[in-house]
Nucleic acid binder design. Structure first.
Lengths: 160, 160
DNA sequence: GAACGAACGTCAACAAGATTGACTAAAGGA
DNA sequence: TCCTTTAGTCAATCTTGTTGACGTTCGTTC
């Protein structure tokens, strides 16, 4: 039980990065197969952010962890490709709500289907209990670091 | 044991992304505290790639998963900041080897120290066995997807 | 009810980082 | 020796994010 074992092994950060990419690449590959081709990588986070219903730009900004200007341009791109639409907020004329269009809902459904499929693939290798274990463990670590609220998912540009 | 549980929970990809960021942010925070300030996010992957000794640009390109031009510029930046140096390859006059300088070795040592420290923090929350479990599980999934060789760690620009 | 400061979102200019294409030089095989 | 392939660089472009300035609306306070 030396302390050096961790240093010479593949760093955890690299494993996490590779595992993340494995999922994301698999997702986009399958989406392309199904005909979804005009996607930008960051669309997915917005999509998942709108899963529970409309959100304001500010809320999306908090979710993504970037500047509001960047999110504004991202949403603009999603409006142009027909995945979301903007509405003026019912109670606040300054704000606008972003919500999924029909097409956006179909994309979201496809994404969730594929995620399920990919998780099933993982389960074939390590078993479903392990996956749930990873989920719980990471959740615990994150909550211990950030408190109850999960942190923003930064644009992920920066890395190791 | 419904199939819907996974869809409504936090997607695994998001958890992996957040966990990765937690490590990376922690790393850069602590590096900055120790006076390492002229770092670029991607330096770390090159650093770890050179851990085992000199490598050619081509090998680094495979490791990082980006274009050789991007790696060339990245290495150039690391040469300018004094972390690595280039040499012409002993057996191949076309190729150049990239290797750590003294300063690069000191940085690498700091990085590994901090990774150990961060893993110890994780261990305080979920226990060391769980960390090793995650490591093994991710490793198994990755190898099942890519074969024996671990895949490239893409610049991580693209995401969800 | 008028006025001030704060908050929501957009526009425009800029910067960082990666990509593509063209090129030089060296290797390796026929 | 010629021809193709490979290693690396240079230059132009694109994508994506940031910063700063702005118009509009809200909410509080006088």
């Amino acid at each position: 039980m030396t302390t050096r074992t961790t240093a010479t092994a593949v760093p955890l950060a690299r494993l996490l990065a590779m595992a993340f990419r494995l999922l994301i690449d698999g997702l986009h590959e399958r989406l392309a197969e199904r005909g979804w081709r005009d996607l930008r990588p960051a669309f997915g986070f917005v999509l998942l952010g709108l899963r529970g219903g409309p959100a304001t730009l500010r809320e999306l900004t908090e979710l993504l962890g970037t500047s509001k200007q960047a999110v504004s341009k991202l949403v603009e791109a999603m409006v142009e490709t027909g995945y979301v639409k903007r509405r003026t907020h019912p109670d606040d004329a300054r704000a606008k709500t972003v919500q999924l269009t029909q097409r956006g809902h179909r994309l979201l459904a496809a994404v969730e289907e594929i995620y399920d499929e990919l998780e099933r693939q993982w389960a074939d290798v390590i078993g479903r209990e392990r996956i749930e274990g990873i989920r719980e463990d990471l959740d615990a670590v994150l909550r211990s670091a950030y408190g109850e609220a999960l942190p923003a998912v930064r644009p992920l540009g920066p890395e190791a």
